[in-house]
Amino acid sequence: MNFEQLLLTVLTYGCLYSVMTVCLNLQYARGGMINFGTVAYFAAGAYAYAIFTQEPPQGLDQYLFGFNAPWWIGFIAAGVASLLFAVITGWPTLRLRGEYLALTTFAFAEVLHSFLLNERRIGNGSVGLSNVDRPDFSVIGLSENYAFVLAAVLLLILTSLLCRRILASPYGRAVDAVRNDEVAAEAIGKDVHRLRFEIFVISAIPIGFAGALYAMITTLVSPDLFTAEVTFFVWIALVLGGEHTIKGVILGTLALVTFEEVVRSLHFETVRAAEIAASVEHMMTGVIFVMILRWQPFTRFATRGREA
């Protein structure tokens, strides 16, 4: 793989995953909610996009719906699908705290995964939907690779701006107050449940858009692509970058994606060697993750800066 190709891949996927980490950061570092089902909102977006733009089923296809709509309708549908899924999962679960919330969101994500895998009428079951529609970029005169990088970067910038805007507003300070001391926030008249719910739902929308973009890039959606691995990956990226700052989590995600892509682009003689390399990469990710949680270098750095 040449350098330019590697750079493009890293930028595209890095930005896509960064959208998720930025949203997760909003939920966790600011809202105090542990969402262990991130992949579900991503998958909801990707599947919604695929279903809306797919041609009606024919031949061996087992899915029921294909609306053959233009790409921008599919893109909007992706955001809506993710939002709806956040409403469905957030409404009953957000009164739970800490690890209980983590477990319920995790379980919801697994339920969605299981439905996508077993219910062939949604998206062909384990086969998935292939040949997902791509928007035509020739209008603006860019090759597809560059266009997708541009789209991913744009989506990331918009998401970051949205998050920063929310957090810098009085509304953001109310969210901080709820996280820091729920009782106190409630005592001064903040509707704690509503605030948490709103943050949860708002932050799901960009994840859905990222899912749609992911479906366009890979032109394939299948349950295999949306496992709990994605959730864990995003969490590791979040911790790696040092939670709390948008810049930090984006850098963390880019670093992790770069690391992964570099290992993937290495050339191996045998399948077994590639397998070992992938596993070792997994192990190293885990070790780095545990070490960062142990010594918390970023938090320490941040607080030192504040004192100075």
Binding site: E99, W235, M283, F289, R294
Partner: peptide, 30 residues
């Protein structure tokens, strides 16, 4: 792994254990 970070709270311990799961899972795979 877990002893030194016990005072950081159950959420950090929970997330750390995901990292440990990664390490063990990767080792078994390798």
């Amino acid at each position: 792994v877990y002893d030194p970070i016990r005072n950081l709270g159950p959420a950090v311990l929970l997330i750390s254990s995901v990292g440990v799961a990664y390490v063990i899972g990767g080792a078994i795979d390798a």
